[in-house]
Design a protein around this nucleic acid. Sequence first.
DNA 1: ATTGATAATGATAATTATTATCAATAAGGG
DNA 2: CCCTTATTGATAATAATTATCATTATCAAT
Lengths: 146, 146
Amino acid sequence: MAALALNHLLENWKIALRQQGYRVTRPRLQVMEIIVSSETPLKPQDIYQLSLDLESPPGIASIYRTLEMLDDLGLIQQIHQPGGCHAIWPAVEGHKHLLICSSCGQMRVIEGNEDIEDYINKIEEQTGYHVKDHWLQLFGTCQNCS
Amino acid sequence: MAALALNHLLENWKIALRQQGYRVTRPRLQVMEIIVSSETPLKPQDIYQLSLDLESPPGIASIYRTLEMLDDLGLIQQIHQPGGCHAIWPAVEGHKHLLICSSCGQMRVIEGNEDIEDYINKIEEQTGYHVKDHWLQLFGTCQNCS
DNA sequence: ATTGATAATGATAATTATTATCAATAAGGG
DNA sequence: CCCTTATTGATAATAATTATCATTATCAAT
C-alpha cells in the first residue's frame, strides 16, 4: 500500500475513533499502524508478534480489545482463508457454490456456473494474476425462514 | 439430506478409508454419521456435543483425529462463515471481491461486478432463497510469484 | 473361528488462543 | 494544569486444540 494512502486511512480511523468517543491511545495507534501497513491479512497473534519489535509494545489484551473496537466501528473485516475456519461439511466435487441461510443455518450446494468463469477471465486480464481457484458463498434467507 | 443419499455417501467414505489402509472403527463411524446427517456445517465441538447423546461416545481426541483423517482424504471441506475466521483486513466499501496470492499471501481488493448479480438473480429464481450478501474470493498467483 | 501385529482409542496432560478481572495509568475536556 | 474516567498491563480464568502413552480392538493371516 502506498504510504500516502496508508496515512490517509490511518487519519480517517483516528477521526472515526474520536467521533465515536473513543480515545486515541498509543497501544491503539500501534495496532492500527501494523494493520494498515500490512500487505497480508493478519490474525491477532500475528499482530502481537509484529508488535514485539516496537520499543514499548502493547499488551496482548489491548490488541484483542483494539480489534474488537475496530470491528464494532466497521473499520476492519474478516478475511476467510484456507485453514482459517473450523466448520466442516462433506466435500463436493468441482466448482460448486454454497448457499447458506442466515436464519436457520441450513446450507445448500449449488452448481458452479460459467457466468463466474467469464468474470474470472476478465479479472485475470486486468490484474495479471493467474486464478487457480475461487470460493463463492451466498448468504440469505431460505423459503422456510422468509 | 435424503436417507438413501446419506447412506450412499457413508458407504463411499468407508470404502475410501479401507482403500487408503485406514481401519473402520466405531468412533470413526460415529463421527462420520454425525457429519453426513447434519443439515448445517459443524465445528469439532459441535460434533463432540452431538456425540454425547450416543450410548458410548468417542473421546474428544478421536473426533479431532477423525476430522484430520477425513480432511487428508479430501472427504470434508471447510465452510467459511461470518465470525469463523480471525484474519482481518481494513474494511472495504460495498461489494468488493478479494484476490489472494497463494504463494506470497498478498491480497488485492477488486471491484464487485454486475456479472455476479446476474448469477445471483438466477440462483434466487431457482432456489426460492432471498440472497442478501455474497462473498467471492479468488485464489491464484500474482505476477511477481509466477 | 482364532491368533497376532499394530493401528487406533481413551484419558489426560500440555499447549495455544481468547476472554475476564482489577489496580494503576494516561487521555483529553474544562 | 487538574480531574474524571476510559484505557491499559499483568495475570488469572476459560476454551480449544494437540501431544502422550498404556490399553484396546481391527482385520489380515492362518
